[in-house]
Simulated scan of single mutants.
Amino acid sequence: MSDRFFVVTGGPGAGKTSLITELARRGFHTIPESGRAIIREEVARGGDALPWADRRAYAERMLERDLSAYSTAQTLTGPVIFDRGIPDTLGYLTLCGLPVPPHLAAAAKAARYNARVFLAPYWDEIFTQDAERKQTSAEAEATCAVMRETYTALGYEITELPRADIVTRADFVCKQLAN
């Protein structure tokens, strides 16, 4: 477990990546979301490990990349902010109604983050779809709920981010990290 590893989770389109970008600008080590990178790679190579094609393969790729990122983050000093964590893959499979393989459940229990997890709540005013984010607003809300349930079931404490501009959100996170 690493008390200096912090996760920002939630549904798609809730401002997680914008917050992570601002925290990186402020000098924090950050780890980008694996899902979008995998989608770009799979589309570029004509692969099918995609959320709209082979969800199990997509989940395995996310787990592989997230385990690697977790390992790499061990070499960094100070707080490290993750745009989603390993439990997000578990939540993704749950949301899709797919079974969670034992190795994924074990990874989510073994590779622990700080007990405080930041949740970006669904926020209709900023939610948008794009080529990589095809979920509807209802799916985004459901994803947020599943991530809250998944992290809570794993013993994490949820700290909900305010529905506010990025600077205010980043200030909120910085204040929480100082406590």
Rank of each mutant, 00 (worst) to 15 (best):
S2G: 09
D3N: 14
R4P: 00
V8G: 08
T9Y: 05
G10H: 08
G11I: 03
G13Q: 03
G15D: 02
K16F: 10
T17A: 05
I20E: 03
I20G: 02
I20Q: 00
I20W: 03
T21W: 00
T21R: 14
T21Q: 13
E22H: 02
R26D: 06
G27F: 04
F28C: 03
H29I: 03
H29Y: 11
S34G: 14
R36A: 07
R40P: 00
R40Y: 01
E41A: 14
G46R: 12
G47I: 11
G47K: 10
A49E: 10
A49D: 01
L50V: 04
P51K: 07
W52F: 04
D54E: 11
R55Y: 02
R56S: 12
Y58Q: 05
E60G: 02
E60N: 06
R61E: 15
R61V: 05
R61S: 12
M62W: 01
M62Y: 02
L63D: 03
E64M: 00
R65H: 08
D66Y: 05
L67K: 12
L67Y: 02
Y70V: 01
Q74N: 04
Q74R: 13
Q74G: 03
P79E: 09
I81D: 12
F82N: 10
F82Y: 12
D83Q: 11
R84L: 04
G85E: 10
G85F: 05
D88H: 08
T89I: 14
Y92H: 13
L93S: 08
L98C: 07
P99V: 09
P101R: 05
H103F: 11
H103G: 00
L104F: 13
A106Y: 06
A106E: 15
K109A: 15
K109V: 00
A110H: 14
A111V: 00
A111H: 15
R112T: 07
R112C: 09
Y113T: 08
Y113N: 06
N114L: 02
L119M: 13
A120S: 14
A120C: 12
P121S: 12
Y122V: 10
D124Y: 02
E125G: 02
E125P: 01
I126Q: 12
I126R: 09
I126M: 07
Q129M: 14
Q129S: 13
E132R: 08
E132Y: 13
Q135Y: 09
T136Q: 07
T136W: 06
A138G: 08
E139F: 06
E141D: 11
A142T: 01
V146K: 14
E149H: 05
A153T: 07
E157A: 13
E157G: 04
P162M: 03
A164L: 02
A164M: 01
A164Y: 06
D165T: 04
V167G: 00
T168D: 14
C174I: 15
C174H: 00
Q176N: 06
